[in-house]
Amino acid sequence: MIEQVTVFIENERGRLASLCRTLGDAGIQMHALMVADTSEFGVVRIVCDAPVKASRILKERGYRSSLANVVAVEVPDVPGGLASVLESLAHHDVNVEYAYCFALNGMTVDILKVDGENIVDKLTATGFHLLQPADLYTSREH
């Protein structure tokens, strides 16, 4: 499991920009950003090199920010690569709430929010490579 920064923002011009600027000014490197949007608000999900620090800084600046535990899986960079990961999860009775992909250092990484019992065991059983915090974070500052 890795830590993802989640931020709740209202749909307002410049709100996402100022969020990113806040993190940039704090020297935080984002690896991936995904916005789940509705007509009124957005939930911004960020994978970055210092999630604890990022969440703390955002809170200090008045954002509603939290940390969520998500799974980062290295996906084979071939057609059907993600499909085989998801099929395997379905086979092991793991429910996926949401997912998004990004590239990092030549790897293709899929972030999955999953629920169910013994997730890590089940994922390990699938045989896929799970990224560890050390693969993504340069900072573990609390």
């Binding site: 989640t6 939930v43 939290s66 969520a68 709430e97």
Partner: peptide, 15 residues
């Protein structure tokens, strides 16, 4: 406003 500890990571929960 949601309380401090509300888990808003999934849009579904807010909706």
């Amino acid at each position: 406003e949601p309380i401090e500890t509300f888990d808003f990571d999934e849009v579904r929960k807010i909706e």
